[in-house]
Design a protein around this nucleic acid. Sequence first.
RNA 1: GGCUCUGUAGCUCAGGGGAUAGAGCGUCGGUUUCCUAAACCGUGCGUCGGAGGUUCGAAUCCUCUCAGGGUCACCA
Length: 572
Amino acid sequence: MVNYKEIIADLISESVSDLERDEILNMIEAPADGKMGDYAFPCFRLAKVLRKAPPMIAKDIADKISGNEIFNKVECINAYVNMYISRETFTGDLIKDVLEQKENYGRSDLGKNKKVIVEFSSPNIAKPFHIGHIRSTVIGNSLYKIYNALGYDVERINHLGDYGTQFGKMICAYRHWGNKEDVIKSPIKTLLEYYTKFHVEVEEHPELDQEARDIFTKLEGGAAEEVELWKWFREESLKEFTVVYDMLGIEFDSYAGESFYSDKMGRFLVELEEKNLLKDSQGAKIVDLEEYGMSPALITKSDGSTLYITRDIAAAVYRKEHYDFYKNIYVVASQQNLHFQQWIKIVELLGYDWAKDCIHVPFGMVSLEEGTMSTRHGRVVFLEDVLNKAVAQTKAVILEKGVATDNIDETAKIVGIGAVVFQELSNNRIKDYTFSWDKVLNFDGETGPYVQYTYARASSVLRKVGEEVVAKAEKLEGFDPKYITSDSAYQLAKLIYKLPEIVVEAGEKLEPSIVTRHIINIAQEFNRFYHNEHINVEDENEKLAKVALVISARTAIKNGLRLLGMDAPEKM
RNA sequence: GGCUCUGUAGCUCAGGGGAUAGAGCGUCGGUUUCCUAAACCGUGCGUCGGAGGUUCGAAUCCUCUCAGGGUCACCA
């Protein structure tokens, strides 16, 4: 597909020699209002260099480039050169491109197969997978899809929270009040009950705290009984997490969590010591980061045991050695901003130049209407419940609408879960939000079901025109873009054209919502087109051209949804 | 208090140097003998938190300031 911006930059740089071509390329913009043209070039900045009034410069440029065949019209309004691309050529080229690339439309080989690690989801074992975990899980999965589409070799790591004093507490509670059968029946809910009870009981019996710490020390030391319980809790937890991951269609390449690095920390403590980075402070060991404007990082506790910052450093080094990553991305809540700044700085101070390739991708907090979520106080909304409720609600809507689908349950699953995922990915990730049932279960407007509905509508059109016509359109037999030059058809084509750029931008900014927003735009424009024009018309050539555009839009929507980790139903 | 993020329409949010600041929800009204109405169209007294500054041009960049969130040593 031709890059119009590049062509225009070439043309303008021929007539304006005072500016670098790349600079000109950067100045080319798309007018906010499509009526002002497809591309615009503001001439204000040239006034100083050329010592001429901007409108005159604009006129000169317009005169020089207007003869080119890619333009339908070039005009200037004040200091702007407004360029209108020839709609037939543009739409024709675009459709050829999309039909040729199909499910690969939007992908590129920008990444040259370089290794990228995305660490995401990372729940704590023996604790419920609640609505707060959805963010890292869904954002991380989308970033995986986006980087994969950009041609990177992506490794998905689920850095399970499977280590730390909390397991001392858990084992302690299990021994006091636990029951094997209950755990087997419903592992996480039962273990959570024990954990909650521990925190209630410890108020009355403070000695439990010490007992829990001792158990963890035993666990760390490899005591058989403790290790066995820990392993059991881990396995049962993972089984439950897998249920949710399956619902979301998410997979991982590695479940190497915190415990995996528990024996890989020694050498960094030595290295830190050798490089004189460690300081003693109140019996603990710290790295002083004051000159970098940060509070000190606590490396080992006064009792000698390690903290998660040490494990994160060990993990980063392990990953560099094991994967030799180009980028090492962490999808972790913004609450941990300081933590990431600290350990990445420490890795840098250790002399590893790849510290700059470790990227923290923060996201905002989810709270409940009744306040902050708290596992300890049992104030949680389980993700599995949210997904199930969304699916049930979707099924009710499908039955109510009476749309004949071959498999109602399957469709309800695609749409219901898609609604939750889509909503999660529609705002900038840094924003906080309050979870509300009304909001996740609302399917009107800028929502997943809206986009999926648009896809189903396009699919329905293709069924109506028949396989023969679709096959012909796909092969571009008798294709003439002169039938699809209306405003809505052209706007739709322009949005489809932009998809590949959008994927690149979303990758650079590590922001899936850019993709989400864009497919909403495509869906809106498709619905406008669908409403304004009849597709299944008598005239064979007109029909073929319109069907080709429908196929293109449908492809773009499907490929876009896939980048969010969503499916698209044929009927709904 | 230090650092940091957020503040744009009644609500939820896009836009992050350029031309009259945009969507969705909600409100009120309209569209179906016609390809799925989970749709489409119309309907918006917005100090872009406030004040300075830089610029031909600022919601966008800088400084200060107000409000809210997060975080700041033995949890992760």
